[in-house]
Nucleic acid binder design. Structure first.
Lengths: 124, 124
DNA sequence: GCCCTGGATCGAAGAACGTCAATATAAGGC
DNA sequence: GCCTTATATTGACGTTCTTCGATCCAGGGC
């Protein structure tokens, strides 16, 4: 099923016809914009990158993330919350610590957007 | 050369190892965030979608874009400027009218980011 | 029970953003 | 030259974002 997406993405010279296939309606644009907005901050991008660096099924403790930035602990916690609200990551408390991991779904939808111009009307 | 990227993107179940390959440093994150921020607004997404709907080499006149939204003409002009500053589109004046088209480069970089975790240190 | 530690939440301050009306600029027609 | 049309720029206003210090909550050890 991902075959068609692959082909379109593969053509660097014609990368945009993906976008073109169908124009975004207002609802699709609003939903997509939320995700892009969540990614539109360097701190959040680095947080996501650090969490994703553990690979499939990997987790990172907040106690590893916070000291990696010269920002206060509440600020990091706030950015993690925004990433969670964008359904890009999720977390679980285990004992004293909280662990975060990446949710692949929404990122996959972004790729689908580029490839087909649609949001693959999944989970919302 | 896009072969490897294709493979990674194709695996929905393991969509994130792409991100994982290399962690973003501050500069990469800042540059990427600019693009995501430009995409993080529903109006700009729809503008980009409308322009991209003309396909490779296609153009759209501003006089077609502006009436598609219930926003003032200066506001649309402002959003187009932001998309231009993010190197997502470019424009040219021909007579009285101005025509916009999509620049494939940066969008391709976004795909590369998802696929390899790097920004393919290209133009900007 | 009390204390300590790791994280989240609250509330406020400043910066950035989206929008508009007004104005400026560019090009064409007279 | 002047007038009109299409687009960009300016300046202002309200909203949203980012950040912080202060505080709260959850869990573990005593």
């Amino acid at each position: 099923m991902s075959k068609q997406e692959l082909e379109v993405i593969g053509q660097d010279a014609t990368c945009c016809p993906g976008l073109s296939a169908a124009q975004l309606d207002e609802d699709q644009a609003a939903e997509l914009a939320k995700v892009f907005k969540a990614l539109g901050d360097p701190i959040r991008l680095r947080l996501l990158s650090m969490i994703a660096s553990r690979g499939e099924g990997g987790e990172v403790c907040v106690c590893e993330l916070t000291p990696a930035f010269s920002l206060s602990q509440p600020t990091i916690s706030h950015h993690l919350k925004l990433l969670r609200q964008a359904r890009l990551i999720d977390c679980e408390r285990r004992g004293t610590w909280v662990y975060y991991w990446v949710l692949p779904g929404v990122l996959a939808k972004l790729a689908a957007f580029r490839a087909t111009g649609r949001t693959a009307g999944a989970t919302a």
